[in-house]
Amino acid sequence: MANYQDIIASCKDKKGGIIEAYHALQREFNYIPREAVAEAARVFGVSEAQAYGVATFYSYLSVEKRGKYIVRMCESAPCHVAGADKVLKAMEDYLGIKVGETTADGKFTLELTECVGQCQATPVITVNSQPVFNVSSEKIPEILSAYK
């Protein structure tokens, strides 16, 4: 596992690249560890308060620990009319957690998202940002069981 200093250092030549660094950190850890926020602040020459403000502004960034797979349910209007509520309920039941929570084994975190731009095949969920199309409550166990 790469350490956070190296990950941040790999982005340091991008002017204003703190968000890129956060993405890179999340690719490794699925969230942005506290020390990494402080390090990013140092590397990109901003205050820690600002680095923290940036990390908490964007909904895809998290400063809280998350599971290995981040499952997101799109709840924007097109998915909403296509039955997102039912799919979400099915995911909560299958995983035994509510939105915003992580399964006890640390495998799944369930989140909501606004439109992911795959509205040709609603409702849509994403698993670690990869979209899964035309989901339905019935298909959820099969879809999620594929992630180990």
Partner: peptide, 9 residues
């Protein structure tokens, strides 16, 4: 001092 900022949105 830059001690504070806005968090969340």
């Amino acid at each position: 001092a830059q001690a504070i900022n806005v968090k969340d949105r």
